[in-house]
C-alpha cells in the first residue's frame, strides 16, 4: 500500500496541478511540438529496434516449442499477432519509454531544480508547471500510443521476416490480424495513453523535488525511472485485468 502511494501519490498531485495549469494558461503549442520531436526522435530508434529484436526472440522460442509439441509454427501466427498487439508491445514500449523519457525528463528538471532555475522562473512571473510539465505531459500522451503502433509493427514484421528467412516457413501468419478485434485495439490504446500520461508526471515529480546539488540529481533520475517502470507494470496489469473481468 505504501509502495503504491509512493509511486502514484506525487504524480497524482502533479496531475491535478498540471490540469489546472492547462485550464488557466493553456498549452504552449511550440513547446509541445519541441517535446514531441524530442520524444519521437530519441525514443523511436530504441523502441523500433527493441521491439524488432523482441519479435525475433519470441518466434525463435515459439519455433523451438512448436516443433516439440504441436509441429506447425504457422498456427500460432494469428494468436501471436493479437498477443503482441494487445499485451506485449504496449508493456515493452511503455517500459522502454519509461527509461528513455523518464530518465531524460527527470535529469533535465532535477538539474534545473538544484540550480534554482525553477524558482527563478517563478520570480520571472512564469508558472514552472505550465512551462515545463504541461508540454512534456501532452507530448508524451500523444507520442506513446503512436510509438506503440510503430513498436507493434516492428515486432510483427520482424517475426514474419525471421520465420520466412531463418526457418523457411510461411511467415505471413505472423502479421495476420484475423483474431484482432476492436477491444484488443482499445485495450492497447488505453494502456498507451495511461502510461504516456504517467511517465512524464512521475519523472517531473521526482525532478521538481530534487534539492541539494549533483547527488540529488542522480537520486532523482534513479527514483524517477524506477517509479516510471513500476508504475507502467502496474498500469499494464490493472488494465489487462480490467479488460479480462468485463469479459472482452
Amino acid at each position: 500500500m505504501s509502495a503504491l502511494l509512493r509511486i502514484f501519490g506525487a504524480p497524482a498531485i502533479l496531475f491535478a496541478r498540471t490540469l489546472s495549469a492547462i485550464r488557466q494558461r493553456g498549452v504552449d503549442r511550440r513547446a509541445t511540438m519541441v517535446q514531441l520531436v524530442e520524444i519521437g526522435s530519441k525514443s523511436s530508434l530504441l523502441i523500433v529496434s527493441g521491439l524488432a529484436f523482441f519479435g525475433a526472440v519470441m518466434v525463435t522460442i515459439a519455433w523451438a516449442q512448436t516443433r516439440k509439441y504441436t509441429g506447425n509454427i504457422t498456427v500460432v501466427g494469428p494468436a501471436y499477432f493479437e498477443l503482441m498487439l494487445r499485451e506485449f508491445a504496449p508493456l515493452l514500449v511503455a517500459l522502454l519509454a519509461a527509461s528513455r523519457v523518464g530518465a531524460s525528463t527527470s535529469a533535465e528538471i532535477a538539474a534545473m531544480s538544484v540550480n534554482e532555475q525553477i524558482e527563478a522562473l517563478e520570480l520571472c512571473a512564469a508558472d514552472p508547471i505550465a512551462e515545463l510539465v504541461t508540454p512534456r505531459f501532452v507530448a508524451s500522451l500523444i507520442a506513446l500510443p503512436a510509438l506503440m503502433v510503430i513498436g507493434t509493427i516492428a515486432a510483427a514484421v520482424s517475426a514474419r521476416v525471421v520465420v520466412t528467412t531463418a526457418f523457411g516457413a510461411d511467415g505471413s501468419a505472423f502479421t495476420d490480424a484475423r483474431f484482432v478485434d476492436a477491444t484488443d485495439v482499445l485495450c492497447a490504446f488505453v494502456k498507451g495513453a495511461l502510461c504516456g500520461a504517467f511517465i512524464p508526471l512521475a519523472a517531473a515529480a521526482r525532478g521538481l523535488k530534487a534539492k541539494g546539488g549533483a547527488p540529488a540529481v542522480g537520486e532523482a533520475v534513479t527514483a524517477a525511472v524506477v517509479d516510471a517502470s513500476m508504475g507502467c507494470l502496474l498500469i499494464d496489469f490493472v488494465v489487462a485485468a480490467a479488460f479480462l473481468l468485463i469479459g472482452v
Partner: peptide
C-alpha cells in the same frame, strides 16, 4: 503569483 511580482531575486547559483 501576482504579489510575487514585487520581488526580484539574485540567486546564489545565478540560475
Amino acid at each position: 503569483r501576482r504579489r510575487q511580482r514585487s520581488f526580484g531575486m539574485v540567486f546564489q547559483s545565478d540560475a
